[in-house]
Amino acid sequence: MEKLLEVRDLEVSFLTYGGEVQAVRGVSFDLHRGETLAIVGESGCGKSVTANSIMRLIPQPPGRITNGTIQFKDKELITLPENQMRKIRGVDISMIFQDPMTALNPTLTVGNQLTEGLKQHTSVSAKQAKQKAVELLDLVGIPNPEERLSLYPHQFSGGMRQRIVIAMALICEPELLIADEPTTALDVTIQAQILELFERIQEQTGVAIILITHDLGVVAKIADRIAVMYAGKIIEVGTKKEIFYQSQHPYTKGLLNSVPRLDRREGKLIPIDGTPPDLFSPPAGCPFTARCPKAMEVCDRVYPLETKLSSTHEVECWLQDERANKLLASK
């Protein structure tokens, strides 16, 4: 499969009154054409910041991309001038945000908001743009699309609005769609519908999707590969099967144990004790050490190296690394 996006050693910081928050600390991953990568992790682990960095939508200041490369096809996005970046946003890479209730401008009609990106980036006529908007609303499953174009966002329900937001993101036929918690603000039945919509869209358009979420149920449904983030780092990445059935990192296992399951009898969930480390001054070793039930001495001191478990499965944990003992002895 052809590589669409390659992120290497991405580091993003925010300068606040309290000091520098290192939100993303060296994230690397690849994305191939037409695949769905889910980035999961708890609040504040840097998954949204990673997504916004790809779009270069980090507010600067206070945000700052301090290191790394983001290669999209043949373009390096981090150093790309703003006017070039504008031609990529919405055209090659589109983004969907969490809350459909606020992501649409309340004072403009849906039709206007749907077509404005298309009008900006291509030289279509108003009529063609409208035609395209109707097609897309139809694709995302909104009945009577033609009549709905002249309505305002407040005249739609939450699920409908998220469909509109998705249609809006797809109108310029992007190759990459970044969805930042697209179902979090929706109720469960609508969630399922929206996820099905994502699957259908990918089948029909072949768009690659980066799905940012904290919901493993969402991931299980549509992801091809999963990257687990913790304290600004990707600690484990693998195919869906590898993460769900052969996860090796104690944090990933902890996450899976804290999800309710229908196929197990015991009703009690096992939470992960403690809280993530302070990203003002992240620890030198593995950031999960303090919460890890299997922590060793080395974990606290040195950040674990990457261990390849298969061609697709990588984990950053000393438990998987035979060098842990040697390193400990040499210290």
């Binding site: 970046m85 946003r89 606020t102 309340p106 404005e116 990106g117 900006q120």
Partner: peptide, 13 residues
């Protein structure tokens, strides 16, 4: 507001 971010994500001027 979020819709300003949406507008920026569309690559508008």
């Amino acid at each position: 507001q979020d819709y300003i971010k949406t507008a920026r994500a569309k690559g508008l001027m």
